[in-house]
Amino acid sequence: MTSSYKVKLLRRHTAAERTMAFYLEKPDGFDFIPGQNIDVGLIDHDIIDPNDSARAFSIASAPHHDYLLIMARMRDNQYKNALECLPDGAQLEIYGPYGSFRLHDDTGIPAVFIIGGIGITPCYSILSHAIHEKSDRRFYLFYSNRTIADAACLDELLRMQTELVNFKCIPTLTAMGQSNNGWKYEYGRIDFAMICRHMPDPVRAKFYIVGPSRMVWPMVQHLDGRIPRANMLVEDFTGF
């Protein structure tokens, strides 16, 4: 059941270039399914446009955590500026949880995440939950960013491979030359050929495509005909 709650901002840190992670107090009785999202409302309306006082964020933490984690690309707009300036302990209003983006039931079918940038947040929640549950289902994460600095939670995701037995993380950079020292993963946009290099039989998998519209819908079109559309689930982050 969706509800609204007053919560405190506990702390924040920089998660990547222009990306902040905000830890919010988790209200008593707040329950959600990994992959769902909440609206976060700024209570001090004097400092922002009243028409932009609440925005939706995927929950990046897992249900067993005692906090709610959200992440935001810090674009130059009134809402994000106001959020960034809030002191720790400031009060926020959250609404939710919302959304039908959640993992499929059949653990025998692999889950493939095709993620662009900050779209990593619902996936991060699902993977954290899977670690907590000691899940042995197969997960593949294709994680696309322009540069290493843009890739939120990359170290943690790579480390998750040691904690989650059947998880493979395949990061890729789209705006860096292949001469970059030390990068031992993929370059360029995610495509079907890249997917096939890293996993067997993708046709049988469920695909979760998350990111901005300009990434999500071309990816659906690219995979169309190769992967059944019924096996794709999208989360379009435009306007979030």
């Binding site: 009243p50 028409n51 939706a56 519209s213 379009d236 306007g239």
Partner: peptide, 14 residues
């Protein structure tokens, strides 16, 4: 109404 747009219709603009 304009104030509720982002919450009610994510991805849309008045």
């Amino acid at each position: 109404v304009p104030r509720l747009y982002r919450r009610v219709r994510p991805g849309a603009e008045l």
